[in-house]
Design a binder for these strands. Structure first.
Lengths: 222, 222
DNA sequence: CATGTCAAGATTGACAGACAATCTGGCAAT
DNA sequence: ATTGCCAGATTGTCTGTCAATCTTGACATG
């Protein structure tokens, strides 16, 4: 069986590129919550026309990465602690489920990738890296799990939360010691999945979310 | 306590109206799965410009109500049985959770509305109404539950599935006897919520989803 | 000083028109 | 039957324009 070589020329449309650029800008904190995004400014800095930009903004709005108030325009939404809590509640359900399903059906190749991603996180945490690197490696780790849970809806939903989750991760990862604890929890998830133990995987994933929530709560006041 | 009277003038933007009209058209089956939606045609029938229409299409794309293939344009996606199954799996998780939480915190007014919505469904099923009415009353019933579960993310997520769920409901409700069974299951959910029994509410909600899935599976071949 | 009013400027909402890039389907040639 | 190519249809994107709405600051009023 030949590897399905992906020769697809990646001809991205302007719209897609704008969405990606803006998403990245929001996630990396270039636009802060509460900031208004002025269309004409974005157009000139991105070098695209207003219609194209506005299409991209609608996509981001649906992702909840921005809010568009009629006649006021787009802005980066503020995240209240209650909002954050609700996100953790859903993550507990869905990531627990994803980990459990994943443990039953993940292929060896992906399992290997999961291990490597855990290792990448460990290295980043040892390097006392910027929160940025810690967040992206964590995000990768869970992305592999949800991509291999056998349910696209769960994947879609968690992907839809990713932006906000990463925002919260950036806060908690800056707490001293959180990265190490996080690594222990993630390793427990990995071990359970590797052992094909669904029950244990769910439990470990849920526990991680609970701990992450507690850490975020501490970090939230700042 | 005065009812919070909603005086907001409903000044909808063209974009919003287009989104609503198209959403309704897709849900009510005016556009069938697989159909391509030609922009210029939609523009003339809706009486809006292409930029406005395209913004609306991006919103619908994010809702997964349409797919936009680059250089081919938007089309109503086909729903495979595997897709449907995955939706039922997530509904089992989230609607179960919503029912459980709802039973703990729903206010008496909303509980009353829930009862009325159940009664509306019963009447519709006795009238041997068109599937249309059965679907919308069912949808209302569950909407009340998820709106009162105290978690906006769950509400958002289930709302995002609503289009596809209603599509499936329309299929199953046309099965003889399904409406009656459905009513029994929904009544069980209502009773448990009214009794403030979270555990029972979750169980009843999950059972309903399982039964609904079985019914949909039978109906899916047609 | 607090409050209300109003006009100017900034920004969004929406449209029309245009043109290039790309896809589709059919026809001819090999 | 496969390939090559052309015409029509459709989308991707831009520019430019205008009205509607929000924001702000100045000013007048009590």
């Amino acid at each position: 069986m030949t590897a399905k070589l992906n020769l697809r020329v990646n001809r991205k449309t302007v719209q897609q590129e704008v969405v990606e650029k803006l998403r990245h800008a929001i996630l990396s904190g270039i636009f802060m919550p509460g900031n208004r995004l002025v269309e004409t400014d974005l157009c000139s800095s991105l070098g695209v026309s207003r219609p194209s930009l506005r299409e991209a903004l609608r996509s981001l709005q649906a992702e909840r990465l921005i809010e568009i108030v009629p006649n006021r325009g787009p802005q980066v939404p503020l995240l209240s602690w209650r909002d954050a809590e609700e996100i953790y509640e859903v993550r507990e359900l869905l990531e627990g489920e994803a980990a459990a399903r994943c443990s039953a059906i993940i292929l060896d190749d992906d399992l290997k990738a999961l291990g490597e991603s855990l290792e990448a996180f460990r290295r980043a945490s040892l390097r006392r890296d910027s929160a940025n690197e810690l967040v992206s490696t964590t995000s990768d780790f869970f992305f592999i799990i949800m991509r291999n849970c056998g349910n696209k809806i769960i994947e879609e939903t968690l992907t839809g939360l990713k932006a906000r989750v990463n925002f919260l991760r950036a806060r908690s990862m800056s707490l001293p010691g959180r990265a190490n604890k996080s690594h222990v929890e993630m390793k427990a998830i990995y071990t359970a999945i590797k052992a094909r133990n669904a029950k244990q995987a769910r439990k470990a994933a849920q526990e991680h979310v609970v701990k992450a929530r507690d850490a975020a709560k501490k970090a939230f006041g700042s």
